[in-house]
Design a protein around this nucleic acid. Structure first.
Length: 475
RNA sequence: GGCCCUAUCGUCUAGGGGUCUAGGACGGAGCCCUCUCAAGGCUUAAACACGGGUUCGAAUCCCGUUAGGGCCGCCA
């Protein structure tokens, strides 16, 4: 089995493309097949190196890999040769109709009104071509013979289209450059692609491809068309309409784990039939089957305020929690760096990772959850934050003075800190919580923070005492 | 406009004639746990687009309507 993913470098890799690639990869891995990555760069007008780079960037981030790589622009000879082979076999003809500048005319089925071109004798066709008259090579779709083209799609089942409803599509442009249909089919045949998994927008093109494969005398690959990804506004997800929210690099930069993203995207239009949603890569491979692919389009649930589907974020958080402290620290490092934390390193992040692991959903949230671990001095906070439940500033002061005292001699471990602070609270007749809260705010600079004892242990005695002293001075 | 595809909670979905007073997940609401916040546990609101058939029986099969989507380029 050989599958292929064939992006055209006309923009960054977007979610839909990523999903197509992931499904291809999964299908191949599940069935011991080969993944071919083919850059469909035949549209010289629109291709850019920047686009190609960003597609590779997105693909590499997914961290799935591929087995073979091809670039269509390097295979033009094959495509051209195949087109002329079809011509020689009588399945294509030269159309000398000048290119229309009128778009409406172009959309109005020019070919129907140029039956004459279809019927041009080979002699006249050759003569006009030899005279240098520009032409486009068109496929001669069988007409008036009741031909029906049947596609047995692995997802949509048997679909049929009358050949009479298919226009005479182009194989070669007037520049001699092969079109997408020609290049794609010639390559699929040459690369011995056995299964084509692609977006449903190509379902209607498949009939043309069947015609090309037949004219080429090669076996028709099996197809599996995937339901499309839609935006909440009801339109097909697109770079142009929906902007960077559809780019996989947006997910990467926001702090998604590659696998968190992969897992989410897999659930769009496919289900493992076992009520489980959080799946490891291996589980995905083991469970993947075309039977689980849905036929209806799937809508990604994002808004202007929140560009990410809540389920994607949740799944990412789930996978985040499976990471060990060192693993999470490694993932966190670039985001901590970007947040401008002073003196960050994997080593310093490692003890912090378990403290924020259950409190972040995206890696980027390290910026707002772990900042106080790296601040030389806490940013200013409202002194009233120090006030404990059912207490006042005076109580806060009592608590902090006591904390300072017991912490000076405490063992900086979870149990040591626990005993010291609870004991201290008892001595000054405070509830444990009334002791904890002022200390928490004193060392973290805010009320919402990771568990106190672990936090103090990471911060260490010197920093903890220093911050508590600062808080006392504030009162 | 022509051809084609699709239609279950807000979103992703299970379901393939009786087990459906329609299941799960996210998100929402509530409760529990608890040193704050999370995480976790429990509970809860929320859907078969509509109309006709077929059948003893339809979310499930058929037809139509409606809605959405795709294709109809010398784009891919």
């Amino acid at each position: 089995m050989r599958v292929r993913f064939a992006p055209s470098p006309t923009g960054y890799l977007h979610i839909g493309g990523a999903r197509t690639f992931i499904f291809n990869w999964l299908y191949a891995r599940r069935n011991g097949g080969t993944v071919v990555l083919r850059i469909d760069d035949t549209d010289i007008e629109r291709n850019t190196q920047v686009s190609e780079d960003s597609i590779f960037e997105g693909l590499r981030w997914l961290d799935l890999g591929w087995d073979e790589l091809y670039r269509q622009s390097e295979r033009l000879d094959l495509h051209t040769k195949s087109a002329w082979q079809i011509f020689e076999a009588g399945h294509a003809y030269r159309d000398f109709t000048p290119m229309s500048t009128d778009e409406a005319a172009a959309a109005g089925h020019n070919w129907l009104f140029n039956a004459g071109m279809r019927e041009l004798s080979r002699e006249e066709s050759d003569r006009r071509a030899a005279a240098g008259e520009p032409f486009v090579l068109r496929f001669r779709v069988p007409r008036g013979v009741g031909r029906e083209i049947v596609v047995d799609d692995l997802v949509y089942g048997k679909v049929v289209k009358a050949a009479d409803d298919i226009e005479d599509f182009a194989l070669l442009r007037s520049t001699g450059v092969p079109t997408y249909h020609m290049a794609s089919c010639a390559d699929d045949a040459d690369l011995r692609i056995t299964h084509i998994l692609r977006g449903q927008e190509h379902l209607a093109n498949t009939y043309k491809h069947v015609l090309i494969f037949e004219a080429l005398g090669v076996p028709v690959p099996q197809t599996a068309h995937l339901p499309l990804l839609m935006a909440p506004d009801g339109a097909k997800l697109s770079k142009r309409k929906h902007g960077p929210v559809v780019s996989v690099t947006t997910y990467r930069d926001a702090g998604f784990l590659p696998h968190g993203f992969v897992n989410f995207v897999c659930l769009l239009g496919w289900n493992p039939k076992n009520d489980r949603e959080k799946l490891s890569r291996q589980e995905l491979v083991d469970l993947f089957s075309l039977d689980g692919i849905n036929r209806a389009n799937a809508t990604i649930n994002f808004t202007d305020e929140d560009p990410f589907d809540p389920k994607a974020v949740w799944l990412n958080a789930e996978h985040l929690r499976d990471l060990s402290a060192p693993e999470l620290a490694r993932e966190l490092l670039p985001f901590a760096d970007k947040a401008g934390f002073a003196g960050v390193s994997e080593e310093r992040l490692t003890p912090i990772a378990p403290l924020i692991r259950e409190r972040i959903r995206l890696l980027s949230e390290v910026a707002t959850t772990a900042d106080f671990f790296f601040a030389a001095e806490l940013p200013p906070y409202d002194v009233n934050e120090l006030i404990p439940q059912k207490g006042d500033l005076a109580m806060a002061k009592v608590a902090l003075e006591k904390a300072k005292e017991v912490l000076a001699g405490a063992e900086f471990t979870h149990d040591g800190l626990d005993a010291a602070l609870r004991g201290g609270a008892e001595q000054v007749k405070l509830k444990a919580g009334q002791m904890f809260q002022p200390v928490r705010v004193a060392v973290c600079g805010r009320k919402v923070a990771p568990p106190l004892f672990e936090t103090l242990a990471v911060l260490g005695r010197d920093v903890s005492l220093h911050r508590i002293q600062k808080a006392i001075e504030l009162i």
